[in-house]
Design a binder for these strands. Sequence first.
RNA 1: GCCCUGGUGGCGGAAUUGGUAGACGCGCAGGACUUAAAAUCCUGUUUGCUGCAAGGCGAGUACGGGUUCAAUUCCCGUCUGGGGCACCA
Length: 977
Amino acid sequence: MEYNFQDIEKKWKQYWEKNQVYQVTNESDKPKCYVLDMFPYPSGAGLHVGHPLGYIASDIYARYKRLKGYNVLHPMGFDAFGLPAEQYALETGQHPADTTEKNIARYREQLDNIGFCYDWSREVRTSDPKYYKWTQWIFLQLFHSWYNRTTQKAAPISELVSVFEQEGNSNHSCPEDDTLSFDSEQWKQYSATEQRAILMHYRLAYQGHAQVWWCEALGTVLANDEVVNGVSERGGHPVERKMMRQWFLRITEYADRLITSLDKLEWSDAMKEMQRNWIGKSSGAEVNFALPMSVNAAEGNSSIKVFTTRPDTIFGVDFLVLAPEHELVDTITTAEQKNAVDEYRQYVKSRSERERMSEVKQVTGCFTGAYAVHPLNQNLLPVWIAEYVLAGYGTGAIMAVPSGDERDHAFAKHFEIPITNIFGERYTGENAYSEKSGNIENSGYLSGMSIAEAAETAINTLVKIEAGKRRVNFRLRDAGFSRQRYWGEPFPIVYVNDVPYGVDENNATASTDVLPVTLPHVDSYKPGPEGKGPLANLEDWVQSAAGERETNTMPGYAGSSWYFLRYMDPHNDTEFAGRAATDYWQQVDLYVGGTEHAVGHLLYSRMWTKALYDLGHIGFDEPFKKLLNQGMIQGSSRFVFEVLVNNLVRSRKGRIFVSKSHYVHLKKTENDIVKTIEYLNEIGIDCVSLENKREDSKISIIRHHVDVNLVDGMLLNLPLFKELFNINADSGYLLTEDDGTYICDAEVEKMSKSKYNVVNPDNIVAQYGADTFRLYEMFLGPVDVSKPWDTKGIEGVHRFLKKLWRLYADEQTGWIINTDAPTEGELRILHKTIKKVNEDIERFSFNTSVSQFMICVNELTTLGCHKRAILEPLTILLTAFAPHIAEELWQEGLQHKTTVLDAAFPEYDEQLIAESSITYGVSVNGKKRTEMSFAATAEQAEVETAVLADATVQKWMEDKPIKKFIFVKGKMINVVV
RNA sequence: GCCCUGGUGGCGGAAUUGGUAGACGCGCAGGACUUAAAAUCCUGUUUGCUGCAAGGCGAGUACGGGUUCAAUUCCCGUCUGGGGCACCA
């Protein structure tokens, strides 16, 4: 009786399905445990071997918790809205709903293949109207709310209206414009439209303006991903930044809470650090630099506000820099500089933020012709614009201190702006002194003060003369929430006279009755007029009874910001999730996913959870208690080499592919056309003579990705390659190595369809079985580390399962499990394994668990153990990792009548594990010289005597006197002489 | 450029709190069984020198420093792979 994984896995999958073993109830006496994976976006490429890594880890944990007696919620769903489906629709005309449906079916099939314990009755799909109804509902809650800074909580906007009616906004300054001020009388005199405009500045979901990539040729807004090398990915058209009205979520109001409540989460320090840095809280000052009428042509009384974290350096300011998009640029630019400024701003429009931030060596900027007044010494400071100042950070303007900041320094040097030194000898004139130590010099009354002291003093003065104030700034920006796209959630918003209203406003029926605003069917995915999304083309749909519909859709992260709540109560028609359900399941106990979501999804869902908590809809304010980041499984790409020639080959027959050694050779001479031609002639490619070579003769040697499935190691499958690329005697060249093989190149990259390095788990499951696949993915290495996929080692874990099988069954005679009493040695290895596996799962060290299983099975095999008393607990241990074989061994081998899924995880007995003697490494002066064994109970005195008497130790001591004798019980011995 | 993270044999990795570096597996080499193959089993496998051999001596965890009786582990600097950088998900 052999280990026939195909039959076994099929049989138990059907059994589990039939008996609905993975269905979870919301009522149970057991303690609850919520184990969640980041749900996938169902792409057309299907699952690759990287996806299941985290899923297997969480599956093991969920099964383990179940064995430990928990009621475990372990659901799965699909993040089904998104750009790729729409791009695919644009290219092929297939409706995103159809392709998404198809992709989901494929994902589901692939997931089922691997044997996960998901409760599919709770599946959610973000593109399902029954689901996005509640995404829209939550959006409306945010739209109808504001953030009360006094109570540090979100609250209904109606409360704010009452406050305005009674006292104006004196106690609740406007988040978008802190100069906005009105009393109750003024409020009442505003028109309804004006009132709504003011409220918009307070709402948690609000409208504002932001820059987007605009492509004139395509007539559409592009995502960052769709802009490659400064042109549109589709068609290669020019793109530029353009302001557009957009929806936003006021996540900045939560910035402080998002930082402080990180402390109560069990996330990795790295992950917390990334979020903290993303939020980027910094303390400093806002300083006003006046723009005097006498200096500037424009109207006076205005000033440039800058944010600085170094108010102590204020006497080192030599110029000001505005972001090129800054609203003051138009008014302050002098007539002489206007052309230069316009030209510069045009250039900046083509630049991404990334380029502007990273290309620091390239100094660009333009003088506006204007001057501002230093508030403390009344010096006149030139005002520049430069791309290194970003509009979205701080006030979009900086005070430049060249002697103390690298970028300011480079800028001053480049444009030959005189530099004021406020650091004495620490500033050399070559580089800025950006260290935060030593006293400030040459700074009027701040001279001689420490940095902290000077900063305090400067702020106090600025406040006194009303030229600035203390300010805390966040790097975090409000979250853009509009997309000019089709395949996303429609907004539950209508416009009346261009004023946006929630669809639930001015409506007699309950708010949920007007939801969902269903995504209408379209036949064309072409953009609408004026950069609007495709929905704007549907006139009938846009004109609703309540007003003109919003034609933007929500971004990808909308649906994923709250999906973990829906799993708790997935079929609820009257609420996003019933309070009883959310109170029962509470937070996600373990959330598993990649670090690539560190600052996007994970930050947004934290904000949504806090908002829902503030508004009283749920009883907890953090979604994910514990976070496990699985590493990325990278692809190992393979490359072939092609020689591209222009007007050089005499009798051109087709494409020229060469093996690696030729490539290496050609690459060296690529720029030397003579040598290249010589080489090509030498290897049998007939080239024109050099005299005949034309002006436009060109040669280049490039690498192409080639499908990894065409390559074994580095060896190309030649027959298949020739067939696919149509290379034979009459069409094309293929130059191999001397031994007739073709050697490819390799590189580790992200696994993706476009790189032809995708390995499909289906093939591996078909060949080795799901249990082997699961074990192998875990055995590859720590779950949180990135590593390239390599199928080579899978034989080892497959052999392990076969070996395990032979403990229970004999190939000829069948089951061989006996009821003999176990020996001490057998018990020791079993209990060691129980302990190790238990501890390893708790710390998510699954690779070492697998290796312990191997050690255990190897030892039991050597001992010839087929005893029920040993094998039964071992089977339970293995259930979490390899559920199919475990169920077979449990029910067929060990003759249990019920599933192993509900067995009790075995307890280990420390006494059975204890070794009676320990072998110590003995070092002399920290260098290991010998080994000695002592009883586990041996104390230092006993050990010391024996060690010092040892001949080897004595030899290395060379009769020198002992300085120290170090004995760490159970670890090691060190003699210091 | 900025933030986070990794670098240990031919390869994936182990060493959990500073305490015997290389567990476990792959690959490779040799052997057993077999007419043969598959499967299975056994032995060896960081590296240099040395020895007939058991062994012995030295080096070694990206690189250069430091702290310590003791460093893969802690500190400083350098190089380098990966992820993210706000409209991919």
